[in-house]
Simulated assay, not measured.
Amino acid sequence: MSEQATDDVEYRVVAEGVRKAFGDNEVLKGVSFTVERGTATAIIGPSGSGKTTLLRTLNALDRADAGVIRVDDVEIDFSTPTPKPEIRRFQSRSGFVFQGHNLFPHKTVLQNVIEGPVIVQKRSRDEAVAEAVVLLDQVGLAEKQDQYPFQLSGGQQQRVGIARALALKPKLVLFDEPTSALDPELVGEVLSVIKDLAVEGWTLVIVTHEIQFARQVSSQVLFTDRGVILEQGTPAEVIGDPKEERTRQFLDRILNPL
């Protein structure tokens, strides 16, 4: 582990040569990219292209087999053994929003949001509650704080998941296809919250199949295919004028369905 380099301090995330395999299936094949502070990066690509695995390596939910990843001021070379305290320190720099909400069903909305700050970060409950109330208001759920997940719509549950991630005060927020489990009429409310976070200057990395949303909210788009980043650039470059034939084929199927 090493501290943040001084020659690339504008970057919140630096990934170099990241590899990950599950058995004989090499899912990531030496992926490298950077994410600037205060920007949103969208990761798009076909199913099975490595998008979610790439996202999970940024929080060590899936530990990379090789490569170097730095998130904020913590850098880990995954080619060498890393002590658990350093992994926890690495993980503490980011918050993760899952596809399926992953809320504790037996806890209220407020209890779900304060769980991380109180149990993991050992912050005072009063402080955590005060901040949670503000966050729930930010995602439009202030009046739902005493309800349980089963009493909420899928979109509301996902917004609680976003508030829960933000409650950890992360340097980076990771979204794994945050609307994929939602009914179509609920998608907009979640995307609206994420757009607001981007405007507020949070550093975001978002795996998404919502191409128009990626075009609107991100400053960088990564197109992954078969374990590599095949194309990366601004939304205008990657979505509006892709250079690779594989990217064009993918976007044509998504944007111009039969």
Rank of each mutant, 00 (worst) to 15 (best):
L28K: 05
H209D: 03
P184L: 02
K195G: 14
V97C: 10
I162P: 05
H106P: 12
R88E: 08
A142I: 11
E231M: 08
T39R: 15
Q158T: 07
V139N: 11
L174F: 11
G95L: 06
V113K: 00
I44C: 13
V205N: 11
T80E: 15
G67L: 02
V199T: 14
S219H: 15
N256F: 13
A214G: 03
G95T: 04
K122S: 14
G45C: 05
P149K: 04
E36H: 10
E3L: 15
T34F: 03
R159M: 04
F213I: 07
Q232M: 10
D137V: 01
A42V: 04
D225R: 09
Q4H: 08
Q249T: 12
A167E: 04
S47L: 12
Q138D: 09
V207K: 11
S218K: 00
V71N: 05
G67V: 00
D176N: 10
V134N: 11
T179S: 12
N102A: 14
G140L: 07
T208E: 13
L166W: 00
P85A: 08
S32H: 05
G233I: 09
F22W: 03
L58C: 10
A142L: 12
A60P: 00
K84V: 14
V133I: 14
D65I: 10
V97K: 10
S94L: 06
R226S: 07
T80S: 13
T108L: 02
Q145W: 07
F250V: 00
L166H: 01
K107R: 15
S180C: 04
P85S: 04
V71K: 03
L135R: 08
E189Q: 13
G95S: 09
D73N: 10
F98E: 10
I254H: 05
Q99N: 08
L58P: 10
G67T: 01
D183V: 07
S79F: 06
L204Y: 12
V187G: 02
A130I: 01
V74C: 12
L55S: 13
V133T: 12
L204C: 13
R215T: 01
K171Q: 13
K84Y: 10
R248Y: 09
L135Y: 12
V173H: 06
G45V: 04
S49L: 00
A60C: 01
F22L: 03
K144W: 07
F175H: 08
I43H: 11
G116H: 02
N102S: 08
L135H: 07
Q212W: 02
R37W: 03
R12V: 14
H209T: 08
V160R: 00
P46G: 13
